[in-house]
Simulated assay, not measured.
Amino acid sequence: MNLALWIAAGLLAAVALTGGVTKTFVPKEKLAAAHGGGWTGDAGVGFVKTLGVLELLAAVGLILPAALGVAPVLVPVTAVCWVLLMAGAMITHGRRGEFAFVLLNLAYLALAAFIVWGRFGPESFTG
């Protein structure tokens, strides 16, 4: 179970890192033209960049606290935040009729929920 949770956290951290780098450093106009990025055309630059920074922080928060043994409770807390972020992403894509992205966000949400359950529950770092 511990290995599965580490793998899930690693996969989710890779997703967060990729999305975070893209939203933080790619110009909004280029994002809006990309497949699945149309929502950025309706959002302000600051909002998109803020989401990018939050995703970068999530990538760090899913791995480093446990790997370094410093406040490892931040791993499931970060996963809870990711669940909330994905719920918002699902609403946004759903309103735009982008149901393939809703399903993708649902998969990311499920992965984060697994981490929340496992790290607050049977494979807690504190127990």
Rank of each mutant, 00 (worst) to 15 (best):
L57H: 03
A4V: 15
L62W: 05
V15T: 12
A110M: 13
L85V: 12
G88I: 06
S124I: 04
D42Q: 15
V75P: 02
A43G: 04
L56Y: 08
T78Q: 04
L106T: 10
T24F: 12
E29M: 12
L109F: 14
L68C: 08
M1H: 14
H35S: 15
G97P: 04
G20V: 12
L103E: 02
G61P: 06
T24E: 07
F47W: 13
G121H: 03
R96T: 04
G127H: 14
W39D: 06
G19R: 07
G61Q: 04
V45M: 11
A66N: 01
G46M: 11
G10N: 13
G46A: 15
L5M: 14
E29V: 11
I91G: 01
A100L: 09
A16I: 05
V70S: 00
V21G: 07
L3T: 15
W6H: 14
V21P: 04
V53Q: 08
K23F: 14
A89V: 01
L104W: 03
A107D: 02
A113E: 01
V73G: 03
W82C: 09
F99V: 06
F114K: 02
S124N: 12
T24G: 09
L57N: 00
G52I: 06
A4S: 15
V21F: 13
A59T: 03
A4E: 14
N2A: 15
V53R: 07
F114P: 02
V80M: 13
V70L: 13
E123T: 13
W117K: 01
K49D: 07
V26M: 14
P122H: 10
E98I: 02
V83T: 06
G36T: 13
V75A: 00
V15P: 03
V60W: 12
V48S: 06
L74P: 02
R119M: 05
L56R: 08
I7H: 08
E55K: 08
L64F: 14
L111F: 00
L109Q: 03
F25G: 04
G37N: 13
V45C: 07
L84I: 14
F114H: 07
A34W: 12
L54M: 15
A107I: 12
V77G: 01
T50N: 10
L104Q: 08
L84P: 00
F114Q: 00
G97L: 10
G118L: 05
A87R: 05
E98G: 01
M90Y: 00
L11V: 15
A14Y: 10
C81W: 08
V80P: 02
N2K: 14
G121Q: 02
I91F: 02
A89S: 10
L106W: 04
W117T: 05
I63T: 06
L5F: 10
L56W: 06
K23I: 02
L84T: 05
